[in-house]
């Protein structure tokens, strides 16, 4: 009996030692030389593996960041400046702080404003629908409403609003990884700077048709009238092929464009007070009057 026990213990011990030796040798032989900083960088990453940086995941980003000579082309939109500062500290690089961004849906063709002309009965995917035809409304540029962006978001920041048929971005959850913008076949979603205290102004339409055509398709469409561009005193608005675009870098959030837009295509969000259109319009009229007077005087002199 005792013999058996002793033998068992002996065999198992010898076996254990032998196997440990084999493991040790194999590990040594097949050891992959890796920059230890990759692990360090990976540790400070958010770990969402969303691909927002353009790499397959956080590990791939870490590898690329360690290999690169600087951090100019590598930025983790999810972690933002905090994470990038940590990465920079590990690698000894400089990092340019970027303004935090958020996904913005540039379509406000609600069910009411944009009547459905036909009914789509295929697979509920914007990509499939876009490949088939121009969509179930008269607007061939607007949101298709099948929610490919919602499916693409790995942070649960997007949801479809059943009342409007449009996606809604939860600014708290949005990390500006850009997955939704890539998934949208109509390229409606844009990453824009969040703005001071989240305040920002943008044109919520991408319809490039001429005014009357766009208007017929959707009551809320940008008709390319250019009123906003004429009104803007900061040269922040450019007209590109029948649509206005507000450059967030130049916009001073005066909300004058929003007030003059005849179709309500320009949206301002997170402002503390609702827009008093009449007051702003009066202000613009006042300014124009003064300018006209000044011009008259200048002409006199």
């Amino acid at each position: 009996m005792t013999n058996t026990i002793i033998w068992t213990i002996a065999i198992i011990t010898v076996l254990g030692v032998l196997l440990a030796l084999v493991l040790f040798l194999v590990a040594k032989k097949f050891r992959v030389e890796e920059d230890p900083r990759i692990d360090e960088v990976e540790k400070v990453m958010p770990g969402a593996n969303c691909g927002g940086c353009g790499f397959a995941g956080c590990r791939a980003f870490a590898e690329a960041a360690v290999k690169a000579p600087n951090l100019d082309d590598n930025y983790c939109p999810v972690g933002g400046n905090d994470v990038m500062a940590k990465v920079a500290a590990i690698l000894g690089y400089e990092v340019k702080a970027k303004a935090p961004q958020v996904a913005v849906v540039r379509c406000n063709g609600t069910c009411e404003a944009r009547p459905r002309l036909n009914e789509y009965d295929g697979f509920a995917s914007c990509a499939v629908k876009a490949a088939l035809y121009s969509g179930d409304t008269g607007c061939s540029y607007g949101c298709l409403g099948c929610g490919d962006c919602v499916a693409a978001c790995s942070f649960g920041a997007l949801s479809m609003d059943p009342a409007t048929g449009l996606p809604v971005v939860d600014e708290e959850k949005c990390t500006a990884c850009g997955a939704c913008a890539k998934a949208c076949p109509k390229r409606i979603i844009e990453l824009r700077p969040k703005g001071p205290r989240g305040m920002r102004e943008y044109v919520s339409c991408v319809n490039r048709d001429k005014g009357p055509v766009a208007k017929r398709a959707c009551a809320n469409a940008c008709i390319g009238c250019g009123l906003c561009a004429k009104t803007c005193t900061h040269e922040a608005i450019v007209m590109e092929g029948n649509i206005a675009y507000i450059d967030p870098a130049k916009c001073k959030l005066c909300r004058e464009c929003e007030a003059v837009c005849p179709t309500g295509a320009i949206h301002g969000v997170n402002f503390p007070k609702p827009l008093d259109k009449d007051a702003v319009k009066a202000r613009i009229a006042e300014r124009k009057k003064k300018a006209a007077e000044a011009a008259k005087e200048a002409a006199h002199e």
Binding site: G122, F123, S125, A127, V128, A131
Partner: peptide, 12 residues
């Protein structure tokens, strides 16, 4: 299952 609808994207 809308097989072909989905496969068309994969074919692409």
């Amino acid at each position: 299952i809308p097989l072909l609808d989905i496969i068309r994207t994969g074919k692409g």
